[in-house]
Simulated assay, not measured.
Amino acid sequence: MELEYINEKIGRKIRDLRNRNGLTQQELADRTELTKGFISQLERGQVSPSVVTLLDLIECLGTTAADFFKETEEEQVVFSEQGYFEKIDEAGNSIQWIVPTAQRYRMEPLLVVVQPHQSLEEDKPHDGEEFGYVMSGRLNVILGDQIYHVKAGESFYYPAKKIHRIENPGQRPAKFIWVSTPPMF
């Protein structure tokens, strides 16, 4: 196997275990005496850990090397509503993780409903890209100090290098598919 592929696979497994354990990158770094930057690079497949470091990480994440490297059964391809995870904020905005295991992959699709005259939490600049397709209603996509108007049947796409936010300026809920890469935690 190609080294880059192996690094990405190890990184995804570390990130998945860290998330399952409810740890931040900083908390895992503190437990393993590594830096948050190293953990971030490792999870993105940008560095190769030494065997000793990898074994220490695996132990801190509550598993064994045998379980960590065990190949899983066939990957799930189809996901139904019963498996979705939903978060509703105080304003009634809804975010559904429509592929519950997406943190293991390179993109994370969400089904989002933003209530009239409400907005989602502002997102700080980060590596990655974001794409959305508006199914109903309309949105304002705010990138830095620029506002883009998007209506039903239109899509948006941007690198997430600037502060960004999504709001609904309309009189009815706006529903859209939102895909982030890499997945957000």
Rank of each mutant, 00 (worst) to 15 (best):
Q82M: 10
P109D: 06
S136T: 12
I10D: 00
S180C: 14
A91Q: 14
D89Y: 08
G92D: 01
E154W: 09
P183H: 08
D89V: 07
L120S: 04
S40M: 06
A174D: 03
L57Y: 04
R44W: 01
F185V: 05
D127L: 15
V112S: 01
A102K: 07
E4K: 14
V113W: 10
R138V: 09
V114I: 13
Q146I: 15
H126S: 14
V179P: 04
V113T: 14
K151Y: 08
D30V: 07
S48D: 12
P116G: 05
P49A: 11
S40I: 05
E71A: 05
Q103S: 15
P173H: 02
D56R: 04
V99G: 00
I142A: 10
D123I: 15
E90A: 13
P173M: 04
S80L: 05
C60P: 13
I142E: 14
Q96F: 15
G153Y: 04
E43A: 03
L139C: 03
D16E: 15
V114Q: 04
R104H: 11
A174K: 03
H117I: 04
K70S: 07
S48F: 09
G132P: 04
C60Y: 13
E86M: 10
K161S: 14
E154D: 13
I88E: 07
T53H: 12
S180R: 13
G153S: 06
P182M: 02
L61M: 13
E73L: 02
I58Y: 01
M1I: 05
G153K: 06
E2Y: 08
T64S: 11
E73K: 03
C60A: 14
N7D: 11
T53W: 10
N168S: 01
H117G: 04
K151N: 10
S40Q: 06
G170Y: 05
R12V: 08
Q46T: 14
G22S: 01
I95T: 15
L34S: 12
P125M: 12
R44K: 04
V113I: 13
E71S: 07
P169K: 05
G153E: 07
L139P: 05
G132S: 04
V113H: 06
E108F: 00
K87C: 12
P100E: 00
G22V: 00
T24H: 00
K9Y: 02
G132M: 04
S48Y: 13
G62P: 05
L61G: 09
P116M: 05
G62D: 04
K9F: 02
Y105H: 12
E33I: 07
L111W: 07
R18G: 09
I147R: 14
S155C: 02
